[in-house]
């Protein structure tokens, strides 16, 4: 569905069910260069089990209008604007990679808005190397290749996903190409510049689950351990054989972890 946030049109998939803010809400926030489709093996599940689902595209990504945002803080403000525009309460926020930094920032600024927080494949910060940053600015195809080469683990590189017929790397690359030309560089710049994770994490009140990918080359275990250590109320789950793109590479295990955590912390009367 499309809606307006501070004068700019935003797109979010609702998982195939109408959005109803009276229900518990699950919001899925994508990572750098991504869009709502990264969540299609999680979002629809919750939408058909009593939750209102929102998987928005950040500004300048796929279907959302506006210039890409260039800081994590601005993205957190924008996400809060999404919540206010749709009167979202009782939110379970699920975030991947860069989205986790946004979630930490939002969780520290508006600690009472969240009922639970699921952080997938992230640390407290996401430093980006110069080669990738400059490629994202000057050679977008090279940057897309780097991102997908490093981001996907064996399931991606060998097209071993559980959805018959799908080859997830090509799909991921198409999503990046479909974003505005500035989006990837803006996202990576925001990641690289964000330095407030250590201060934000301790202020998150909601229960947090940290989902770690055992073969993640972008958010290695050292980084995810540091994240979990700074959160006051966190549990950690490891998906041993997944690369960074957990929602696509290990969708069934990821969905099961989210299901157990969100059903417990933000029940919706589901079966």
């Amino acid at each position: 569905m499309y809606f307006d946030v501070k004068g700019t049109q935003v797109f979010a998939t609702t998982g195939g069910k109408p959005f109803d803010p009276a229900q518990p809400v699950v919001v899925f926030l994508h990572g750098a260069g991504g869009d709502h489709t990264v969540w299609n093996l999680q979002s629809r599940f919750f939408a058909f089990r009593g939750y209102s689902v929102l998987a928005p595209d950040l500004p300048g990504h796929t279907n959302s209008e506006g210039a890409p945002l260039v800081s994590i803080e601005a993205m957190a403000d924008w996400l809060n604007g999404v919540f206010e525009a749709l009167d979202c309460r009782d939110v379970s926020l699920v975030a991947h990679s860069m989205g986790c930094l946004v979630a930490l920032e939002l969780g520290s600024r508006c600690p009472d808005r969240l009922r639970s927080l699921s952080l997938i494949a992230s640390g407290l910060a996401t430093p980006v190397n110069d080669a990738l940053l400059s490629a994202a600015r000057d050679k977008p195809e090279a940057a897309i290749a780097m991102m997908t080469s490093w981001g996907y683990g064996a399931a991606g590189h060998y097209s071993r996903g559980p959805v018959p017929g799908n080859a997830m790397i090509a799909g991921g690359q198409m999503v990046m190409r479909g974003n505005s030309p500035e989006a990837l560089h803006a996202d990576l710049t925001a990641c690289n510049d964000y330095a407030n994770g250590k201060q934000a994490a301790p202020q998150v009140k909601a229960p947090v689950q940290v989902i770690v990918a055992g073969k993640d080359r972008m958010a290695p275990k050292k980084a995810t351990d540091e994240l979990a250590a700074h959160l006051p109320n966190a549990s950690v789950a490891v998906i041993a054989d997944s690369g960074h793109m957990v929602p696509q590479e290990a969708p069934n295990r990821c969905r099961q972890l989210l299901r157990d955590f969100i059903f417990q912390n933000n029940p919706a009367g589901q079966t």
Binding site: Y158, S159, R160, G161, V163, P164, G165, N166, A167, A170, G171, M174
Partner: peptide, 22 residues
């Protein structure tokens, strides 16, 4: 869908550089 056919589909999609095959 079928698991054996699925292997072929994913192999062809991968070789073509496509997002999916049937």
């Amino acid at each position: 869908t079928n698991p054996t056919v699925g292997v072929l589909e994913q192999r062809i999609a991968s070789l073509e550089g496509g997002s999916a095959a049937v």
